[in-house]
Amino acid sequence: MLDHLFYTLQLADNALILGHRLGEWCGHGPVLEQDIALTNISLDHIGQARSLYQHAAHLTNEIPQEQRAKIFQSVTLNNKINSGELLQEDDLPYLRDAWDFRNALLTEQPNGDWAYTVARSFFYDVFYFLYYTKLKDSKDAQLAAIAEKSLKEVAYHQRWSSEWMIRLGDGTEESKTRIQNAVNDYWQYSGELFVMSDAENAMLKKGIGVDAAALKPEWDAKVEAIFKEATLSIPEEKWMQKGGKQCRHSEHLGFILAELQYMQRAYPGMEW
């Protein structure tokens, strides 16, 4: 049961944190049309996160009360659980601290310039397109339904970020340098997507989760094809950062949460 919850949270946290990051662009994009496009993508991620958190809240509520109070290390959340109240959509995103979050490190990396944002999304979108294609056959009907709905969105995201990779790579000297730098810097966060967490291993066995590691060859092929068209080189660096999926994060997540959870922290228990 716990693995099922953690698995769902992993998906939810990825969607939320990336959606939050992309939302930071709103009003600051390089051109109006792309500001609108990026906000649409952000909205898709937040929408996915909402469905996933509803499911995660439900899974938490199914766990017996005394066990439930020992899952998380966040005081406000545990207080709520101890009071006997059932969790809802917003409790898990707004009341957990960083060491309870399970998103991949990639999603919490800063927006940087447009090139960094594009590179981060590209790695993520190619992965999630493959991932949701498998997840739609999950034995968890809820997750399968979310995956199926999200797949349409992710197909669009993938097209958007792939096209921008190519445009920037094969655009001007400056854009090529910038996107290559971004790729070089964020490459080390791409590997974690394929490292199976404990929850992923457990859910794979039950026919609920996806074999992320098995997606690597397809991901490589797609990335290689786009890089070729974009005239970019694949970084030689093989060392990959990991930890986010097991709740060990970079310094960035704490700051993201400080903003994201600001209202819940300053005015605990109030509804808005």
Partner: peptide
């Protein structure tokens, strides 16, 4: 709307004028 090429124009049109209706 403004776009650098036709593909982008179609995608932007979808984002701007249909808010992504299928």
């Amino acid at each position: 709307l403004h776009a650098a090429d036709a593909e982008m124009a179609i995608e932007n049109a979808r984002d701007v004028y249909t808010r992504r209706m299928e």
